[in-house]
Simulated scan of single mutants.
Amino acid sequence: MSSYTSEYPSDSDFDSEYKTFFEKFYETSDSPSAHEQYSEQFTQDATLIMPTKKVQGREEILSLRKGMWEKIVRRKHTALKVFPFGPNANEVMLYGTVQYSLKDGREATVDWAARAHLVKKDGTVMMDFYQVYLDTAAQNPSK
């Protein structure tokens, strides 16, 4: 079992390929050098909304992704629970935590939530929409 495995509602028939996608997505998200792999998990015209920025398209997602690692040495996402929207859903809400190790030596753990819309393009699962909600003040703990 992956350390990126999430909990799902017991009555959910959520697509196993989508479950695998999220495991790989957060593992890639936590890899400091996987910028291209991260951006390739989105469709060409995807929308990505972070607490402080909205980007459109894979190129802008790649640029945002690189910027997200400028002050971070390490991070570890834990997607605790995934809530699919109805039977055979391709839209979900997620809840989890992320632990950060910053380049200035500080550490932080932040709760987050997200909304994601999944699509299959030529048999490959990708997101065409992903919005993250978190307390940005909690990302910057005092020393």
Rank of each mutant, 00 (worst) to 15 (best):
Q44K: 06
K103N: 13
T97M: 03
R65T: 10
R115H: 13
D30P: 02
Q37S: 13
N90D: 03
E60M: 10
Y8A: 00
L134Y: 04
A79N: 04
F21H: 08
S33A: 13
S3W: 03
K143P: 11
Y130G: 00
P141K: 07
Y100I: 00
E59A: 13
S101P: 07
L134P: 03
G86Q: 00
L64M: 11
K120W: 01
M68G: 13
S29A: 13
E60N: 12
V73G: 10
F22D: 01
D122W: 09
V55C: 02
Y8F: 09
D13I: 01
K76R: 10
K53S: 12
G123P: 02
T97N: 06
Y133T: 09
M127L: 15
V82W: 02
S3N: 15
T109M: 07
S63V: 12
M93C: 12
T5N: 12
T5Q: 11
Q44R: 11
F129N: 14
Q131T: 02
N90T: 01
M126L: 15
F42K: 05
Q99M: 11
S16W: 11
S6H: 00
F14H: 01
Y95D: 11
K54Q: 14
V92H: 05
G123T: 02
F83T: 03
W112M: 05
K76T: 13
L118I: 07
Y38Q: 07
K71V: 14
T109G: 03
G67N: 08
M127Q: 15
K71F: 13
F25G: 05
V125K: 04
R106V: 13
V73A: 15
F83H: 07
W112S: 01
M1A: 14
F83Q: 04
A138S: 13
L134Q: 06
H117Y: 04
Y130S: 11
P51L: 05
T109R: 08
M126A: 12
L102T: 07
H35K: 09
T78L: 14
M50W: 14
L102C: 12
S142E: 15
R58N: 08
D45R: 01
D11R: 09
E27R: 14
H77F: 00
V110C: 05
N90H: 00
P84A: 02
I61N: 08
E40F: 07
Y4A: 04
T124K: 15
F21A: 07
G67D: 03
R65Y: 04
L80E: 15
T20C: 06
T136F: 10
V98C: 10
A108L: 04
Y26Q: 09
S29C: 10
D111S: 10
A114T: 04
R58F: 06
D45P: 01
I72S: 03
R65N: 01
A113F: 08
Y130F: 15
S39I: 01
L118P: 03
E70T: 14
L118M: 14
R75N: 07
T109L: 02
V132Q: 09
H35A: 07
Y26I: 03
V98S: 07
